[in-house]
Design a protein around this nucleic acid. Structure first.
Length: 456
RNA sequence: GGAUAGGUGGCAGAGUGGUUAUGCGUGGGACUGCAGAUCCCAUCUAUUAGGGUUCGAAUCCCUACCUAUCCUCCA
């Protein structure tokens, strides 16, 4: 597959090895609060990437970190007067629940930073010994001058950062561009012991410690939101490569575009977030996924509820078709039946994970199947079902819940009763039954002599 | 100021030199006892502006304008 690599800044062949584990790391959230649709967009995309690679025979280990100690968590815990670890634990559970609702199921391990303190302090120690870091009164800092390539990923030259300075200079630092990797303990804050004093880790070194524990000094894919390129991913590169001496940290860097709302980036600090939990009260995980995957993963999405409504209608078209394929009577067969839909969708994903291209194909497929559906043979029907199954397995944008349960005999008899009424031209009673079924979430559709039904 | 992506119909969003994107919306039709679902036809006569290259430009080049993200909170 070809993928746009943020470091090389062009579309390159992603030559992964099917005989080895593909190591993929994606930056997870700081569990300070509930996640918003911007987070969801990123995690949905990487979920699809992992699912797709696995479907092509790659053994993907998908690792995601969880930042569960951080300034913002501490501040919030003081506001709410709950211990920071409780706040983090609560939000982590919320987060995992939200991901499940979004159908995100490809992550092998969620690594909480606080469980990797030994690895973190070990990395800090190694950086100190090798001269890539130094101690000050308030912590340990990474010495940016020791890593000349700093800024390459984000296209910032190390010198141009001077003019863009907007942080207040820290008296303790040798160079204002240096970033903290260990913060010494402050009163009332959580801390861990270390050879260089009690304290807690800086953000960037959490991720390098976690990835080094699982993957070693380099790995295959590093993903995250585009806003993390600078400084976070630059710092990760600087830390780990300074330690390892290797020429790279990750072989492929993939960044997802931002979700804006009213032409402005959605973020906590701007107070314009729409949380996923709120959205999920009105839209299913598949619908949210479809809305996000309809845009290229690198483009900015301008979020609106209209786009969700549109995705809902689109998703329903697909799931309704599945119900019909499952529940109606097959026909005699269509001549020159068109196949190759899955291959076309795979071709789209092979080309820089073009999910929108795959969805376009799926919509063309839907038009074709819907216009031939009454004539499809059993085999053709199964072929169509397999296409929808693929869309469900890889993209996660089709709800396939047409299988009827054992408690559905009541519905069957109501449908039968209604058809008896219809034969007697007692349409009033027939419509009443239809109305009652609808209230129970059951859709029915008269097709000639027979009637099919499905649950929402 | 620097870096990076863009500016396409009512909306979202493809197309990287020559044929309908696709979806949503809107109008009409078919089907139906009526619905619903679905299909068909149409509509929107789309390419930020101005130059240039070319037989031919949304696509290549130049100029201008505009937007978003990043430049030490961020997915």
């Amino acid at each position: 597959m070809r993928i746009t690599d943020s470091l090389q800044k062009e579309k390159i062949e992603m030559d992964l090895d099917r005989n080895r584990v593909v190591r993929m790391f994606v930056c997870g959230p700081t569990v300070q609060d509930r996640i918003h649709i911007g987070h969801a967009r990123t995690y949905i995309f990487f979920d699809v990437l992992a699912r797709y690679l696995r479907s092509r025979g790659y053994d993907v280990f998908y690792l995601q970190n969880i930042t569960d100690v951080d300034d913002r968590i501490i501040n919030k815990s003081m506001e709410e007067k709950v211990p920071p670890e409780d706040l983090a634990a609560r939000n982590l559970q919320e987060y995992l629940k939200t991901l499940r609702s979004l159908g995100i199921n490809s992550v092998n391990f969620y690594a909480r930073a606080t469980l990797f303190m030994d690895e973190i302090t070990d990395q800090v120690g190694r950086l100190l010994r090798s001269g890539h870091a130094y101690r000050t009164e308030d912590g340990v800092y990474f010495r940016i001058s020791s890593f000349p390539e700093f800024g390459r990923l984000s296209g910032q030259s190390i010198d141009s950062l001077i003019s863009g300075a907007r942080i207040s200079p820290n008296e303790n630092k040798e160079d204002y561009r240096d970033f903290v990797i260990w913060k010494l303990r402050k009163e009332g804050e959580p801390y861990w012991g270390s050879p260089f004093g009690d304290g807690r880790p800086g953000w960037h070194i959490e991720d390098t410690s976690i990835t080094e524990s699982f993957f070693g000094p380099s790995y295959d894919i590093h993903g995250g939101g585009a806003d993390l390129q600078f400084p976070h991913h630059e710092a990760e590169i600087a830390i780990e490569r300074s330690i390892s001496g290797r020429s790279y940290l990750a072989r492929f860097w993939i960044h997802t575009g931002m979700v804006n709302i009213k032409n402005e980036k959605m973020s906590k600090s701007l107070g314009n977030s729409v949380t996923v939990a709120d959205i999920l009260t009105s839209f299913s995980g598949s619908e949210v996924r479809l809305a996000m995957l309809k845009s290229g993963y690198r483009s900015t999405i301008d979020f609106s509820f209209e786009m969700l409504e549109e995705a809902k209608i689109n998703a329903r078209r697909l799931s309704t078709m599945y119900m019909k394929l499952k529940n109606s009577v097959p026909g005699k067969g269509v001549d020159n039946f068109r196949t190759g839909w899955i291959e076309r969708m795979q071709d789209s994903l092979e080309d820089d994970m073009d999910t929108r291209g795959a969805i376009t194909t799926l919509n063309e497929f839907a038009s074709y199947i819907n216009s031939t559906i009454d004539d499809l043979s059993i085999e053709q029907r199964n072929h169509a079902i397999a296409v929808l199954q693929w869309a469900s397995d890889i993209l996660g944008i089709v709800d396939l819940n047409a299988d009827k349960g054992s408690s559905d005999s009541l519905i069957e008899s109501m449908v039968d009763l209604r058809n008896q009424m219809r034969k007697k031209k007692d349409f009033h009673s027939a419509d009443l039954i239809r109305e009652k079924l609808r209230e129970g979430g059951v859709y029915i559709e008269d097709r000639g002599d027979s009637t099919i039904w499905w649950k929402e």
